[in-house]
């Protein structure tokens, strides 16, 4: 389908985006790569009346490693993450996860910031940033603030971002310990039915599509920290989860997948 009629504003900076969002309120939607938003607009599940296109804003893309932190501009594409030698050295989990998002055409346009702000529990990158213990930097009318990834995802397609805030940067720790992403799906280019993400040899474990947000599997992390084997720790991966049921899987099957995929991910990460 064709999206509903919409006005379009192109902005050249995060500040201009904040101002435009402030002016147009709830009717406005920020557009970056558009790989999540435009499909929703085509199905008319999203019907903003104003698009604020931040896609060409300056200073919002690029990867830099300083000390023990990797800083990534929000407009950095999945493809740039996938092909960055610097990221592959400093945080191989994130580079790998970016390489399994959607398909190459999607990865050329889709952005890290867009994926996080979209806050889809079935997406790969939000769970990666969560497992890594990342921080999100956002700009708003009162300046900028930092939000821990653990506080960012608040509900299905909902985040702590206010309507007039713009995600500008994502920071993750340099992380070269054992890692793995086990993504389970049945159809090419599809979202994960369930995914299990392990960072730093099991210090960070996150699950994809097991709740209305990406979640940390804290019981697995705690079990590992207490000396449990990968298999024993993974057995608790689905504890106290209430995963969604859809046409691909029901809740109990998702819980089964979470346990199996977490075990595989822990084993692959050498936990």
């Amino acid at each position: 389908m064709i999206p509903a009629a919409v006005d379009y504003l192109r902005v050249e900076s995060a500040e201009a985006a904040v101002a435009a969002l402030g002016e147009h309120g709830d009717e406005a939607k920020l557009l970056a790569g558009g790989q999540s938003l435009i499909p929703l607009m085509r199905l008319r599940l999203a019907t903003p009346t104003v698009l604020v296109d931040v896609g060409r804003a300056t200073g919002l893309s690029g990867i830099s490693v300083g000390g023990d932190t990797v800083s990534i501009g929000a407009l950095t594409t999945h493809s740039s993450l996938e092909h960055s030698a610097e990221l592959a050295a400093a945080c191989p989990l994130l580079a790998h996860v970016a390489s399994v998002v959607g398909d190459p055409a999607v990865r050329h346009r889709g952005t890290l910031g867009g994926s996080l702000a979209h806050a889809d529990p079935a997406s790969d990158l939000p769970a990666a940033v969560l497992a890594l213990g990342g921080t999100l930097v956002v700009s708003g009318p009162g300046g900028s603030r930092e939000i821990a990834a653990t506080d960012f995802f608040t509900g299905f397609l909902e985040s702590d971002l206010a309507a007039d805030e713009v995600l500008t940067e994502v920071r993750v720790p340099v992380s070269t310990g054992g890692w793995s992403y086990q993504k389970f799906n049945r159809r090419a280019q599809d979202w994960a039915i369930v995914g299990a993400m392990v960072a730093e040899g099991g210090a960070g474990v996150a699950l994809v599509n097991m709740a209305s947000t990406p979640i940390r599997a804290s019981s697995v992390e705690a079990a590992l920290a207490g000396g449990a084997s990968a298999a024993d720790a993974a057995a608790g991966a689905a504890d106290s989860t209430e995963p969604p049921t859809d046409n691909q899987a029901d809740g109990p099957y998702r819980q089964h997948l979470a346990r199996v995929l977490t075990r595989r991910a822990l084993e692959a990460a050498g936990a």
């Binding site: 085509r42 055409a105 999607v106 050329h108 346009r109």
Partner: peptide, 15 residues
């Protein structure tokens, strides 16, 4: 688009 594949149904002409 600028040398790289893109789905032209998932990109606005204005973009």
């Amino acid at each position: 688009v600028d040398g790289r594949s893109a789905k032209s149904c998932t990109l606005l002409a204005v973009q």
